[in-house]
């Protein structure tokens, strides 16, 4: 069965249509494999070759990849959710009820979005600590570390702005508690809070602002920084795999 399927597969890949889409062709040579990466708009941010150690689980735990994956899930589930959602109080809450009780698979969509959001925050934090512990922030990767810190704060803001959107008690008071912290900032705190909420309290204006931030501004900024982040991985010499044991030993004092 297997060889037959492989035959069909190769036949498909030889067709003119396939070739017009995927220019890499059918071969399994390194050239062809390089072309797969080079000629894809999505993959060309990556290098054609990677260190063998860099793709092992031990080095990265794939935390960066998985963070990106959760971001993708969030975009994919977020767009259909936008179709059912009105950023106005209290209609937003009624929309949650409709998702829960009427919309086909609505509850699943919302669950997946919410759990993925929590997973993303968790994975991004884990990614940061993992990067730190294997020393991957050192020269020449300093700036990419900074980009990572920016992405971490963007992740937190994305999650935080999304938290308000269901307009239930949990959302309202979580945002109230969080935004009250801003007031403690000297001089500008109150003003920044007013700017963020569009008022002195969490209200319909805040809901609209958070909606726009959550669905347009922050994702757009995040995508931009993600692109920089990926690009810099490659430009800074690929995934940092740490020094060889022998090299480390030289630094051990009094040994």
């Amino acid at each position: 069965m297997m060889p037959a399927m492989e035959g069909y597969w190769n036949q498909l890949r030889r067709t003119r249509v396939w070739k017009s889409v995927f220019r890499s062709g059918t071969g399994t040579s390194n050239l062809h494999r390089s072309q797969v990466v080079q000629q894809s708009i999505f993959l060309h941010l990556l290098a054609v070759k990677v260190r063998k150690r860099a793709i092992s689980f031990r080095v990265t735990w794939y935390l960066g990849t998985l963070s990106t994956a959760t971001f993708a899930i969030l975009v994919i589930t977020g767009i259909p959710l936008m179709l059912y959602y009105h950023p106005s109080a209290p209609q937003a809450y009624a929309d949650m009820k409709d998702l829960q009780f009427v919309v086909t698979a609505g509850v699943f969509l919302r669950n997946l979005h919410r759990w993925s959001a929590h997973a993303m925050v968790l994975l991004v934090f884990a990614h940061m600590f993992k990067v730190f512990y294997r020393g991957a922030y050192r020269t020449p990767r300093e700036f990419n570390w900074v980009v990572g810190v920016i992405l971490l704060t963007l992740t937190l803001f994305l999650s935080y702005t999304g938290y308000l959107l269901p307009w239930d008690q949990l959302a309202f008071w979580a945002i109230t508690v969080g935004s009250n912290l801003l007031s403690a900032v000297p001089l500008v705190g109150e003003k920044v809070r007013f700017l963020m909420l569009g008022g002195h309290t969490v209200n319909a204006n805040a809901l609209l602002r958070f909606y726009v931030l959550h669905c347009v501004i922050l994702p757009a900024v995040a995508v931009m920084f993600l692109a920089i982040h990926f690009w810099r991985i490659r430009k800074d010499g690929g995934i940092h795999t740490g020094e060889l044991k022998a090299a480390v030993k030289e630094d051990i004092p009094h040994a």
């Binding site: 109080a89 669950n111 759990w115 239930d168 949990l170 959302a171 979580a174």
Partner: peptide, 26 residues
């Protein structure tokens, strides 16, 4: 997502502070 539903509490009400009012976990 199939097994656990995302929490959804009562409609937001500025007059009623839940005790305790908690921020998102992070």
């Amino acid at each position: 997502s199939v097994l656990w539903d995302a929490p959804l509490e009562a409609l937001a009400d500025p007059m009623q502070t839940p005790n305790p009012a908690k921020a998102p976990w992070y």
